[in-house]
């Protein structure tokens, strides 16, 4: 089975700080990681390869330092890694991103043969739009399966895939044809650590680096900032509430404190009392 996994290198958001005075994002020194959601898709791709044979290629579009993320995927067990990097890609919104990724995927198929499956993560932790998967699928005319909680069956012979998908209020069991694009839900598998031989291989492996030209991307006006219909007009800090909480003085006992809080709530929102009485009595 020939499988492609799209990954993105993202800042470790747990460590992002906003400058208290200028309200700008302090990116310096913030470590980057593989977008955590992408790892669940990578793991699923590796499982399918281990079962059916074939190869897993990983693709990212990003700055040269995104090579680190790709190398990590090789250490986890991917077979080939491609970095799509060019100044023309800078400032891409999701539409421009999917154009470049789709072109690169076409080139990958031309070079190494047609793909059976393409994986993306559910969403990223920085842009967080969840739009790149559906966009890539549409541009390559792939059937699309998002929020997948389980791959029930993938039959390379019959070219059929059966999956379970999270929907509002329940789970859909869907059957479709390869090639298709799958975005796994988080927590649906245990991401492997990778073997020692894989990490030795990864340390020395060549990361294939493509410019726009290498990927045979002809229309540069569809890339990067130029090719982005969305325009970020301003970035600003949320207006803080000016008034702080009305503090209730704790009483001598917990009971007194509790009574004081109830007083404060119902004084502030007299209507709440009736609503809550109904709710509490189970209406």
């Amino acid at each position: 089975m020939k499988i492609l996994v799209c990954i993105k290198q993202v800042p470790d958001s747990a460590q992002i700080r906003v400058h208290p005075v200028t309200n700008t994002i302090m990116r310096q020194g913030v470590p980057t990681i593989i977008n955590p959601y992408d790892l669940f898709s990578l793991e699923e791709a590796l499982k399918l390869r281990d079962k059916f044979g074939g190869e897993v290629t990983v693709l990212t579009m990003g700055p040269p330092m995104a090579e680190n993320a790709l190398r990590k995927t090789l250490a986890i067990g991917a077979d080939r890694a491609i970095l799509l990097t060019d100044r023309f890609f800078a400032g891409a919104d999701t539409l421009a991103t999917t154009y470049a990724l789709a072109q690169a995927i076409r080139k990958i198929q031309k070079t190494w043969g047609d793909l059976d499956l393409v994986f993306t993560g559910k969403q990223t932790i920085d842009g967080d739009t969840a739009q790149v998967g559906p966009g890539v699928a549409k541009r390559l005319d792939l059937l699309q399966l998002t929020y997948v909680s389980k791959i029930v069956e993938a039959d390379a012979e019959k070219r059929e895939v059966v999956i379970e998908r999270r929907a509002e209020g329940g789970t859909q069991v869907l059957k479709t044809k390869m090639p298709c694009l799958i975005a796994m839900l988080e927590g649906t598998n245990e991401v492997r650590r990778g073997s020692i031989s894989d990490s030795l291989r990864a340390a020395r492996a060549e990361i294939i680096t493509w410019s726009a030209k290498d990927a045979e991307i002809e229309d540069l006006t569809k890339c990067g900032l130029k090719g982005s219909p969305t325009i970020v007009k301003k970035v600003f800090a949320p207006t803080p509430r000016t008034e702080r909480a009305a503090f209730v003085e704790p009483g001598k006992t917990a009971g007194e404190s509790a009574d004081a809080i109830l007083e404060a709530i119902f004084k502030r929102h007299p209507a709440l009392k009736e609503d809550m009485t109904k709710l509490a009595s189970g209406f």
């Binding site: 919104d93 999701t94 539409l95 999917t98 842009g127 967080d128 739009t129 969840a130 739009q131 790149v132 998967g133 559906p134 966009g135 699928a137 549409k138 541009r139 699309q144 998002t146 929020y147 929907a167 509002e168 982005s228 219909p229 969305t230 325009i231």
Partner: peptide, 19 residues
Amino acid sequence: LGRDLAGSVATTLLTGLTA
């Protein structure tokens, strides 16, 4: 549902989509 659909529609129409 909305996220699955919106990304497809916006890409087909080649327009901007703010998430």
